[in-house]
Design a protein around this nucleic acid. Structure first.
Length: 468
RNA sequence: GGCGCAGUAGCCAAGUGGUAAGGCAUGGGUCUGCAACACCCUGAUUCACCGGUUCAAAUCCGGUCUGCGCCUCCA
């Protein structure tokens, strides 16, 4: 299995620190509002990475935080006249609903920054003891130049950064020893949430949060650290500096970053007014469609969101779901149980699609290519399975399809709700009308059911239905 | 200014040296009372442009054009 490591700028063979186990940390959202579709990309992408690792038999310890103390949260709390805690709790709950809709599995642990302050203070204390940090007027800064490898992730050199920072120098952050130094702890302002520390009542800087939470739940060294590409600098660069300076060992072995999501070819931003929340999308589409859309391109390529592309994704996903529905429908009407020799042979051929799927995923999680293998698999079962197929054969075809779509987090095997007696009666009545060639009546019933969200399909084997 | 990414059919998108996957859309057909689903057929002598390396390039090198990202705690 190969994955692209931002650190080395190339694809590397994945070798876990401990055989059979993967320790993975994904930077989570700051919870000051509903999550937007840009937040959704890393969630979906890295959830898929996790699913594939588990599919390959790894025991994955997956940690993803919620940043629940931050300027934006405080600002929102002031606007609404409630506590910051109320805001963060509310949007964590909303975020979890969205994750469920996108079929993003809960992490092994979802730490909250506010519940880990003690550990952060300890880490800052260690950094000060080692001479890697210093305190000025209640603020603690990281001494960036003390960490010789600073810039190794974002591949920047300190002097280039320095020239870019000139404007900052004159804006009055002159209490820093060096403009590149960043905050580990800052004193509270009036009315802000705060915690006691040896330096001041205040709160931690953003970067130290992830360093500490990763250490606490996964240990000083982890396999994979992931997030959006905008986090490469400065967030992840700073995490490396803090963690490696404090712990004295390499922090994460592999760094994975997803590319950005644009909307109608423009960057999503508040000033452009093109911000789209996952919740908004869910009013128009099943979030499964959003997930499928996100996986239609490689995670390191920029992806453009538009209504047309969502429609195309919806059609594509429906094709996959239809194939599964069809297998289930045929299974319900199968006349024989055991597989014949020909069927066993036909089933063996599906192994080829599994191989194609896996080799796509093994190549830096190429989900677009993996989806192509799923489509070929779909075509194969659409052309191979029919009313004469045995139940066992159909079941095996379905199982194999589901095992692949599960890795992508696509649900194709939704449990069917029982039909209301009334609806069932209408379907029977329509069948009778059709037999009597009373098509006007038959169509009227079909329209009536459509209004109730039931779509009918007449097949040679009988009437198939599904919820819209 | 510094660092970096991308440009493949109407749209989306794989493919990183061996002669262009897959999906959506379009058009035609089979099936069907009709519809829906499914199936078959329908697509790039060509991969932004120019030049080079090679027996061979969308894939490597150089240049040009275009779009974009990071360098401001925005995933």
């Amino acid at each position: 299995m190969k994955l692209y490591n931002t650190l080395s700028k190339r694809k590397e063979e994945f070798v876990p620190l401990e055989e059979g186990k993967v320790r993975m940390y994904v930077c989570g959202p700051t919870v000051y509002n509903f999550i937007h579709i840009g937040n959704a990309r890393p969630m979906i992408v890295f959830d898929t990475v996790r699913r594939y690792l588990e599919y390959k038999g790894f025991d994955v310890n997956y940690v993803s935080n919620f940043t629940d103390v931050d300027d934006k949260i405080i600002k929102k709390a002031i606007e609404e006249g409630v506590t910051a805690d109320e805001i963060s709790k509310r949007y964590i709950a909303e975020c979890k609903k969205d994750m469920e809709g996108m079929n993003v599995r809960p992490a092994t642990t979802h730490p909250l920054a506010t519940e880990e302050i003690g550990g952060m203070i300890e880490m800052i204390r260690t950094l000060i003891e080692k001479g890697c940090a210093y305190e000025k007027n209640g603020t603690v800064y990281f001494r960036t130049r003390k960490f010789k490898e600073y810039g190794k992730l974002s591949h920047k050199n300190l002097d280039d950064l320095r020239s870019g920072e000139r404007s900052l120098l004159v804006t009055g952050e002159d209490e820093k020893e060096d403009p590149l130094d960043f905050v580990l702890w800052k004193p509270k302002k009036e009315g802000e949430p705060s915690w006691q520390s040896p330096w001041s009542d205040g709160r931690p800087g953003w970067h130290i949060e992830c360093s500490e939470m990763s250490k606490k739940y996964l240990g000083e060294q982890i396999d994979i650290h992931a997030g959006g590409e905008d986090l490469v600098f400065p967030h992840h660069e700073n995490e490396i500096a803090q963690s490696e300076a404090a712990n004295g060992k390499e922090f994460a072995k592999y760094w994975m970053h997803n590319a950005f999501l644009n909307i109608d070819n423009r960057k999503m931003s508040k000033s452009l007014g093109n911000f789209r929340t996952v919740r908004e999308i869910s009013e128009q589409y099943d979030l499964q469609v959003l997930r499928f859309f996100m996986l239609s391109a490689h995670y390191r390529s920029p992806l453009n969101f538009s209504a047309d592309l969502m429609e195309a994704s919806k059609s594509g996903l429906t094709r996959i779901v239809n194939a599964a529905d069809n297998l289930k429908f045929l299974m319900g009407n199968a006349k024989t149980e055991g597989m014949t020799a020909e069927e066993a042979e036909a089933y063996e051929k599906t192994q080829e699609y599994v191989r194609a799927f896996e080799s796509a995923m093994e190549d830096d999680f190429n989900t677009a290519d993996a989806a192509a293998a799923v489509f070929e698999r779909v075509k194969y079962s659409n052309t191979t399975a029919d009313a004469g197929s045995s139940k066992e054969f159909l079941q095996k075809l379905l199982d194999r399809l589901v095992s692949l779509t599960d890795v992508l987090g696509l649900i194709v095997d939704r449990k069917e709700e029982m039909l209301d007696g009334e609806i069932e009666k209408l379907i029977e009545e329509r069948q009778a009308a059709r037999k009597a060639k009373d098509f006007a009546r038959a169509d009227a019933i079909r329209d009536e059911l459509l209004e109730k969200g039931i779509i009918l399909k007449d097949t040679r084997e009988g009437v198939q239905w599904k919820r819209a």
